[in-house]
Design a protein around this nucleic acid. Structure first.
Length: 738
DNA sequence: AGCACGCCGACT
DNA sequence: GTCGGCGTGCTC
């Protein structure tokens, strides 16, 4: 709505002085807070969580800072409910405003991320507890006696807890309660996790680790904003080192957030935490049960929960008194959210820490170029752990030049790799084959007419999934059954699969080693996360000889008997147009090869490549990434890419290409000098944004110092609007805005 | 973001 | 004759 139409209401009929209104952020993509009338006799403060009517429904909103809009009093509706819940504190509100401005997303949608626990805003209901006070029931039975034996300890029991402990049905306990044998009280529900004990089992640290841990602990003691990159090779005990900083914060009664890529939030991590602190951290991720989710949200807001280990969305939890943030695996691309609000949780963690005035630790064995440059420029502290734990030796890594050792016809494994697998099998040890491609084959074509199977919605190749009998689009999720005949020429049984996916590698392995027990792991596995967990456990117990997997095998899991890692196609992903392709490949290959060599047994990594001279391959086998990092940094500087320059993707939702091109034209006309704009096809749009429609990504590339935010904001407001809104993903180092 | 309204094509 | 596709507009 424009200003004129807001001001045309009669101020005499509806004098402002009669109305008390407050600004409220509602979960809607508008650029400001809406105004709501404050109920008679109530007073509200910014940050309070309220329920307000919005159109036909009731939604949760947050009372915001600042003045209310001048809005027609006839439109003003009253706040429906004020939740009995701690208000979002000032740093949290400033954080939401900052993220909103930086990511060019509506503040209401950012606030919504902080309110993602629907029923958590009311206090948790009290639970009924029973304490034995009576002597004996009128009639004694064996079951009743068991209940009395258990309840005789004078403690409070829940009805179901007592029944369970005594091994009787709830009816027995209820019967005794009716006879007045119990005193009942209403107690607050137990905390969602036990309190971590900072001195439960301190790890014995080696000298280098001790120095690093002391430094981080001192930062926590200082309680000021600072960023430290904890840079330690695989097996150097990074986790144990930052646990000491966590312990220090807990000792001081403050809260800690440990961010992890979702996939790394494993049982193994939680167990390690428990071993150190005697209790598990509260978890926060997408698969949390709704009830647990509410408890964690609520108890984080009240300050009861001290340590949260969570995926990127945990950054928006309303901590009462945050004292430290740790971002583990800081280089991981999973920290990027590309849905509605686009942000990189690692960078926003730095912002949140800055606003809260607390330290933040970024940990990685393969830090991002951004973080390393920030260290080099003195903005981040740099702590390097260079030695390894006693037993954990790195595997012996070798490149397999595929031009010299070609696979058999129709296969993808070189004789060098198959021989090594055979020897590993003979020793009774495990092998891991890594290929970052799901399905059977990435491209299917008709041998007769050359027809290639393409996605009708987004024009990328359809991937055959032979286990499921489907052709799938890995971009938008479109799928169809594999046809018998070519849809173009009608020829039967002449479709041919091109290139390998893990299913095809599994087939090849089966041919070579028919007696080996193989497991195929990928994110789209039938049976979901639960099945995945079971399979991982089976592997850890040695119930598989050969594991074939996509990138999910690269993360966090420990395979005790894994002594061979084979990378099937190390070149995959090097040439995909992403300016970070080489960096990502290096990080991924480091992680995957790091899966072996954790046992003290002699272990090997064989990396199949057609480009053995490529800097990534050289960096991997030399074990010295410095040359590679330097080269990548120089390249970034030369190309004005982050952190030296600025990069933004503007997602244009458009049903037709001409519309996207219209936007590109508009952008080019309005762009400051030194800004390049490319139109990328729908295949480059992020998966979450396609949903069966053509969407285009405009890559805007600006030099350092250009006002990218201002330019894009202007463009979003003034440019030709397609259906819906434009979404912007910024790759700008937030340090320059702090 | 949701949701209602409203206008045009293919069907019980 | 309706069902239902998505284009448009609105929400304090």
């Amino acid at each position: 709505m424009d200003r004129d139409s807001r001001q045309k209401y009669d101020p005499v009929l509806f004098p402002d002085s009669d109305l008390k209104a407050v600004p409220v952020l509602v979960p809607m993509p508008v650029d400001r807070a809406f105004s709501y009338a404050v109920p008679e006799g109530e007073s509200l403060v910014p940050g309070q969580i309220v329920q307000v009517p919005l159109g036909p429904r009731l939604v949760a909103g947050v009372v915001w800072d600042g003045d209310t809009d001048r809005v027609d009093p006839r439109k003003l509706r009253p706040i429906a409910r004020i939740f009995d819940c701690p208000p979002l504190n000032e740093p949290m509100r400033r954080f939401i405003d900052w993220v909103s401005a930086y990511t060019l997303s509506p503040p209401g949608l950012v606030a919504r991320m902080a309110l993602r626990a629907p029923a958590a805003f009311d206090p948790e209901p009290l639970i009924e507890a029973l304490r034995l006070v009576g002597e004996k029931p009128e009639r004694m039975t064996a079951a009743r006696q068991r209940v009395l034996d258990h309840a005789g300890d004078g403690l409070y029991w829940t009805r179901s807890g007592l029944a369970h402990a005594a091994g009787v049905s709830r009816g027995v306990v209820d019967g005794l309660a009716t006879q007045g044998l119990f005193e009942t009280v209403m107690l607050p529900p137990p905390p969602v996790v036990a309190a971590p004990d900072p001195d439960y089992a301190p790890t014995l640290l080696e000298d280098g680790q001790k120095a690093a841990a002391d430094l981080l602990s001192a930062e926590v003691q200082d309680g000021k904003f600072c960023v430290t990159l904890l840079d330690g090779i695989t097996g150097s005990g990074k986790t144990e080192v930052y646990f000491e900083a966590v312990a220090e914060a807990v000792r001081r009664g403050r809260q800690v957030l440990i961010l992890l890529p979702e996939i790394s939030l494993t049982v193994a991590f939680l167990d390690r935490f428990q071993a150190r602190f005697g209790a598990r951290p509260a978890e926060w991720h997408s698969e949390l049960a709704p009830r647990t989710r509410e408890k964690v949200w609520r108890q984080t807001a009240t300050g009861e929960v001290k340590v949260v280990a969570g995926a990127r969305s945990a950054l928006f939890l309303p901590f009462a008194d945050l004292g430290l943030i740790v971002v583990d695996e800081e280089h991981d691309p999973a920290y990027k959210q590309e849905d509605r609000v686009f942000y990189n949780a690692r960078d926003m963690a730095v912002v949140r820490a800055h606003i809260a005035g607390i330290p933040v630790v970024l940990a990685s064995a393969t830090p991002s170029i951004e973080s390393r440059v920030n260290c080099a420029q003195g903005r981040y502290g740099h702590v390097v752990l260079s030695s390894r734990y006693a037993d954990a030796g790195l595997p012996d890594l070798k490149l397999v030049d595929m031009r010299r050792h070609p696979p058999a016809r129709g296969g993808f494994l070189s004789p060098v790799l198959t021989k090594a697998i055979g020897e590993t099998l003979k020793r009774g040890e495990q092998s891991l084959l890594f290929l970052n491609r799901r399905g059977y084959a990435p491209l299917t074509l008709c041998r007769v007419c050359g027809h290639r199977f393409q996605c009708p919605d987004c024009s990328s190749w359809l991937v055959e999934h032979r286990f499921r009998g489907q052709l799938q689009c890995h971009h938008c999720g479109h799928n169809e059954p594999v046809p018998q005949a070519c849809p173009e020429c009608g020829t039967l049984d002449h479709l041919v699969a091109c290139g390998p996916g893990i299913e095809r590698i599994a087939e090849e392995v089966d041919k070579h080693f028919p007696d080996a027990r193989t497991i195929v792991l990928s994110s789209d596995m039938i049976g979901g996360t639960r099945r995945l967990r079971i399979e991982l456990e089976a592997i850890a117990k040695g119930e598989a000889d050969i594991v074939i997997g996509t990138q999910l095998v690269a993360k966090g899991h420990n395979f005790p008997m894994m002594t061979l890692v084979g990378v099937v196609d190390a070149d995959l992903g090097l040439a995909n147009g992403d300016p970070r392709a080489a960096e990502r490949t290096y990080q991924l290959l480091s992680q995957v090869t790091g899966r072996a060599g954790r046992t003290g047994l002699e272990s090997h990594g064989l990396i199949q490549t057609y480009q053995p001279q490529h800097p990534v391959m050289q960096a991997i086998v030399s074990g010295d990434p410095e040359t590679f990092y330097q080269r990548e940094t120089d390249e970034r500087r030369r190309a004005s890419l982050p952190p030296f320059g600025r990069l933004a993707s503007v997602i244009v939702s458009a049903a037709t290409r001409p519309e996207a091109e219209g936007h590109a034209r508009a952008l080019r006309n309005a762009a400051p000098t030194g800004t390049a704009i490319m139109v990328l096809g729908p295949a480059e749009a992020p998966l979450a944004l396609i949903r069966g429609r053509h969407r285009f990504r405009l890559l805007v590339h600006g030099v350092r110092g250009s006002d990218m935010q201002g330019f894009l904001k202007q463009m979003l407001q003034a440019g030709p609007k397609p259906r819906g809104s434009l979404q912007v993903q910024l790759d700008i180092d937030p340090q320059s805005f702090l």
